[in-house]
Amino acid sequence: MTGFAARAGADAPYSWGWEIRAVNGKGLDLRLRVPDWIEGLEAELRKKLAAVAARGNVTCNLRVTREETAGLLEVNEAQLETVLEALHRIEARAMDAGISLAPSKATDIVTMRGVLEQATTQDDTAQLCAALLKDVDKVLADFAAMRASEGAALARVLENQLTEVENLTAAAAKLAEGRKDEMAQNLRQNLARILDNADGVDESRLAQELALIAVKSDITEEIDRLGAHIAAARALLAEGGPVGRKLDFLMQEFNRETNTLCAKAQHTELTRVGLSLKAVIDQMREQVQNVE
């Protein structure tokens, strides 16, 4: 089942953007593109994604940026202490030598190598990770809501298709009931023709073969099983939750019964109905691939 959600967030000095999308897939395939320097984030995200998606190819992208710190300066205390001690020694030696030095200015000191340097900040990835995991819950809520909306629409489509299958199955049952007399008449005529043109035929053996032919052309079991499959499919749609794989298996059973019905038809109208059933069931199978 397809789905999409995006969201932007921030927690100074960081800002980020989420994007989660999903396309149809037989199983669950999670693909995460997140910063690897945020420890523990990917593992927790996988858990959260698996909790809202049971089927499909799901991609989660996260872009994190940080405010630039260019222009921020700080005093290197250790280097300043070293410089001040050196100045103190120089001034003391100068006084001993009778040399008078001009007083040192702060502007002179800060220009000395290493006293004033670019400010550095420490990344607190634990705090950032917590903020991201809290924010992603909102994105996942939007993602799940979109998939739920699509799922409701898909359920209506499948319900309509099941109704069509039910109507066609009823039509097949009616045609099968109506052809019984015709088939019985054909069997009697064939039996009479064989008996008239064959000497020494084992009539009991012949009757068994004809009875077998009659059984092989009976589609009562196929009609009954199709009815049971329709009821099972409707129950799954009403059940909610991840039912895509169960419906996928059920579509195989639908297709199997319809193929057998067509093979046994031996009747123009019944064959037509069987082919219409196959067409609708194929459409259902395509739709079921979208169900979680």
Score class of each variant (00 low, 15 high):
residue 198 A to S: 14
residue 208 Q to R: 07
residue 189 Q to S: 11
residue 204 S to C: 04
residue 242 P to G: 12
residue 234 R to F: 08
residue 213 I to G: 09
residue 172 A to N: 08
residue 221 E to N: 03
residue 192 A to I: 04
residue 173 A to Q: 09
residue 254 F to N: 11
residue 201 V to P: 13
residue 195 L to R: 15
residue 218 D to L: 11
residue 197 N to M: 04
residue 242 P to Y: 00
residue 177 E to P: 05
residue 249 F to M: 05
residue 174 K to G: 00
residue 186 N to S: 14
residue 176 A to L: 02
residue 242 P to T: 08
residue 237 L to T: 02
residue 200 G to P: 13
residue 189 Q to I: 07
residue 211 A to T: 10
residue 196 D to K: 15
residue 231 A to W: 01
residue 241 G to V: 07
residue 257 E to D: 09
residue 206 L to D: 02
residue 253 E to Q: 15
residue 218 D to P: 04
residue 227 G to H: 00
residue 222 E to S: 11
residue 204 S to V: 13
residue 212 L to G: 08
residue 187 L to N: 09
residue 203 E to D: 09
residue 218 D to G: 03
residue 193 R to W: 01
residue 182 E to R: 00
residue 184 A to W: 06
residue 175 L to H: 10
residue 196 D to Q: 15
residue 216 K to N: 14
residue 257 E to I: 03
residue 214 A to E: 13
residue 228 A to Q: 09
residue 213 I to V: 06
residue 239 E to H: 07
residue 177 E to R: 12
residue 175 L to D: 04
residue 238 A to E: 12
residue 247 L to M: 13
residue 256 R to A: 09
residue 234 R to W: 11
residue 216 K to T: 03
residue 236 L to H: 04
residue 257 E to G: 06
residue 254 F to I: 12
residue 180 K to I: 15
residue 238 A to C: 02
residue 249 F to D: 04
residue 232 A to Y: 06
residue 183 M to W: 11
residue 257 E to T: 08
residue 206 L to P: 05
residue 229 H to R: 06
residue 239 E to A: 10
residue 173 A to C: 01
residue 255 N to T: 04
residue 178 G to H: 09
residue 172 A to M: 12
residue 227 G to W: 00
residue 218 D to T: 06
residue 190 N to F: 07
residue 184 A to G: 04
residue 215 V to Y: 05
residue 197 N to R: 14
residue 197 N to H: 08
residue 193 R to G: 00
residue 240 G to D: 01
residue 194 I to Q: 04
residue 177 E to W: 04
residue 225 R to M: 03
residue 244 G to A: 01
residue 210 L to W: 05
residue 225 R to F: 00
residue 172 A to C: 15
residue 229 H to T: 03
residue 253 E to P: 05
residue 195 L to I: 13
residue 239 E to C: 01
residue 244 G to I: 02
residue 249 F to H: 09
residue 230 I to A: 07
residue 252 Q to P: 03
residue 250 L to D: 04
residue 191 L to R: 13
residue 250 L to G: 06
residue 258 T to E: 10
residue 223 I to K: 01
residue 211 A to W: 03
residue 226 L to N: 05
residue 182 E to L: 00
residue 249 F to T: 06
residue 233 A to N: 01
residue 206 L to N: 03
residue 213 I to D: 07
residue 251 M to E: 01
residue 215 V to S: 12
residue 178 G to L: 05
residue 173 A to G: 07
residue 242 P to N: 11
residue 218 D to A: 09
residue 249 F to R: 03
residue 191 L to F: 10
residue 189 Q to T: 12
residue 194 I to F: 14
residue 243 V to I: 14
residue 178 G to V: 08
residue 180 K to V: 15
residue 248 D to R: 02
residue 218 D to Q: 05
residue 174 K to S: 11
residue 206 L to F: 06
residue 207 A to K: 10
residue 189 Q to A: 13
residue 234 R to Y: 07
residue 213 I to L: 13
residue 245 R to D: 12
residue 198 A to H: 13
residue 224 D to S: 13
residue 183 M to N: 07
residue 254 F to A: 10
residue 177 E to Y: 02
residue 241 G to F: 10
residue 251 M to K: 00
residue 207 A to V: 08
residue 217 S to K: 12
residue 177 E to H: 09
residue 212 L to S: 12
residue 219 I to M: 02
residue 215 V to L: 13
residue 258 T to V: 14
residue 174 K to F: 03
residue 257 E to M: 10
residue 207 A to R: 14
residue 254 F to E: 01
residue 193 R to P: 00
residue 188 R to Y: 02
